[in-house]
Simulated scan of single mutants.
Amino acid sequence: MLNLAELTTPYLLLDPVKMERNIARLQKHMDKLGVTLRPHVKTAKSIDVVRRLFADGKGPITVSTLKEAEYFAEHGFTDITYAVGISPDKLPRVVELLRMGVTLRVLVDSMAQAQAVVKAAAQLGHKIPALIEIDCDGERAGLSKNDPKIVEIGRYLHENGEFCGILMHAGGSYHCPDKAAKEAAAEHERATAVAVRDQLVAAGVPCPIVSVGSTPTAHFAEDLTGVTEMRAGVYVFQDLVMAGLHVCELQDIAISVVATVIGHRPEKGWIMTDAGWMALSRDRGTAQQEVDQGYGLVCAMDGTPYQDLIVSSTSQEHGIVSVRKGSKAKLPKLEVGQQVRILPNHACATASQFEGYVVPTADELVFWPRINYW
């Protein structure tokens, strides 16, 4: 059992009550809309977290690395979508998982990838289910809705027994602070997906899977007619970006980095901590939002935010804490050796800096390991 007094900072603290409340909130919404939730486990990367997402502990899940797929397969998850465009060198690892009885779908948005999938399937002696990635808002990879290559690739994969559907991610929803804009992004995502499915079906290409998702659109979707599954990941922990988008409140953020005060620069209005970018990450996802939270919002150890106190700058192992520019708040008196909690801009990026989570339960403090790398 862990002892808080003996832990070396910085470490990653996870509040399981907040986490489970976040999980239940989105699951209830998906149940209401009648759509399967396929959580993206790239945020947590921990079996101890992901087991809390399912009554039976089997999935379905989304992953962003093959290491995640292998790790969760070892723990009994058999329904996995690898939601990053496939490169040919990874296909032998995909087939190894398929041979183990795992349904692992890969993602393509070019004929070159589709041909690599078909070639590998023939050479390795196992069908490889593939999804076509669709770009609904110009934010990332994928084919545009009316691109004729969608039907061309879909037909080619279908004729070779590999095609299973389409997938898209509404990355533009991360730029939608107001409710109406997020609702519109969710409906645009849904309508685009259904339109592409209809194009494929009209061309004689069955499209059983219609997969959409982002944490903002998952929470603000009002109608998912025609969609078969929703993907979201950061909702499990939430973060300052999601709070800035009004997807959650500050008190919903379930993870924080615990840091120790190591010095002061009173002439500059700085408090120094031992949590630099190696602990917090370099993610500045709130920089373009209404409230710039620097590299993280600083809270007391009970989770109460100090007024306008942020990590304004970082180096590798130093975090510079100061009052947000323009604020009339005063720098709190934090002595050397005193600890604080720092809420992250981007839960996925901050969590990736650590080997696991320190978790206070009802009667003990435990450590939940996580995996990193590819």
Rank of each mutant, 00 (worst) to 15 (best):
T8Y: 05
T9R: 01
Y11M: 00
Y11K: 00
L14I: 05
K28G: 11
D31L: 11
V35D: 02
T43I: 01
A44K: 05
R51K: 13
D56K: 12
K58T: 13
G59R: 01
G59S: 12
V63G: 08
S64L: 07
E74V: 01
E74Y: 05
G76A: 13
T78I: 04
I86R: 04
V94F: 00
E96F: 04
V102H: 01
V106F: 02
L107T: 07
D109W: 00
A114M: 04
V118N: 14
A120N: 06
I128Y: 04
C136I: 03
G142I: 01
S144L: 13
P148V: 03
E152I: 01
G165S: 06
S173Q: 12
P177N: 07
A180H: 11
K182A: 08
E183A: 13
A185N: 12
A195R: 08
A203R: 08
G204C: 09
V212K: 04
G213A: 10
P216V: 03
D223W: 00
M230L: 13
G233N: 13
H246L: 06
S256N: 10
D274R: 08
A275I: 02
D283H: 14
G285I: 01
Q289P: 13
D292E: 11
G294H: 00
A300V: 03
D302A: 08
T304Q: 14
P305E: 05
L309H: 01
V311S: 10
S313E: 14
V336Q: 14
P344D: 04
T361M: 10
T361G: 12
P369I: 00
